[in-house]
Design a protein around this nucleic acid. Structure first.
Lengths: 135, 135
DNA sequence: CTAATCTATTGACAAACTTCGATAAGTGTG
DNA sequence: CACACTTATCGAAGTTTGTCAATAGATTAG
């Protein structure tokens, strides 16, 4: 469907001067959207906020105790955050401990700031987010 | 389901010292998640980026021309961005022009930074995002 | 008024997501 | 080994979301 186009320039009145296109390409946009999608859930935001409030890694049992959700649900959300590279997970004995990947979160914030800035400031800044493969 | 709790403290070995709870409440978390949800789509990120690249408001026809999506789909995404307060929409004659709500985007970035910061820096900062009702 | 044009809305459908109950996997204890 | 406990995974139900075709609404030109 990529020949879709407007024909405004051929008509007597144009809606506007031609607008600048987006500076972000489709594949990069998809990566960024996926990262944001991992954030866009109240439970996951709560988990991230809880991790931010603890200097030390937090035990899954403590996470589960803080939300009105079943244990499989919390485990699922933690997996999503983990696969998005937003948190680290470490097993110690029967317990699992999670902590923030602060570097990655900073990266995300920079990404957002870049998207919302005019093109001049975007030069060569649409670096694909390193899709961290984490334990 | 809110009596759910762990019983670790009653057992011989505890997993950890008790972790700090999240500082964000459920209703605020829902608002923030909704705002992020509006961002978490490649097409919508592309639209926002396109608006960021244009000082002047952009005609819908120009937006439609830049993406491999049908006109109703673009209109739908614009409505989502509008209802999330991320963009302004103005009709002029038969044309509609959209522009960034930069203030709101800054608000979002501040919100994210707050969520990811330790509790000391969150004091009284979980202000509900002003749910802008815009034309 | 009629026709043409641009945008928004509606209805439908498939894909993705959140949640849960049940169960498996992994670990430590008696 | 058998048992208890924590966490992860699986399968299913219900909801939400992205997309399109069709259509309605609004505006301008003739």
């Amino acid at each position: 469907m990529s020949e879709r186009k407007n024909n405004l320039r051929n008509r007597p009145t144009a809606c506007c001067t031609v607008a600048n296109p987006p500076a972000i390409n489709a594949s990069t946009g998809q990566q960024y959207a996926a990262a944001l999608n991992a954030l866009a859930d109240p439970t996951r935001l709560g988990i991230l906020n809880m991790l931010a409030n603890n200097q030390e890694p937090v035990c899954v049992c403590d996470v589960t105790a803080q939300f009105d959700k079943g244990q499989p649900t919390i485990s699922h959300h933690l997996a999503i955050l983990r696969e998005a590279g937003l948190v680290f997970g470490n097993r110690e004995g029967i317990w699992s401990y999670y902590s923030l990947n602060r570097e990655r979160l900073t990266e995300l914030q920079t990404m957002l700031a870049t998207i919302f800035s005019p093109a001049e400031q975007q030069t060569a800044s649409f670096i694909p987010l390193a899709l961290a493969e984490r334990p």
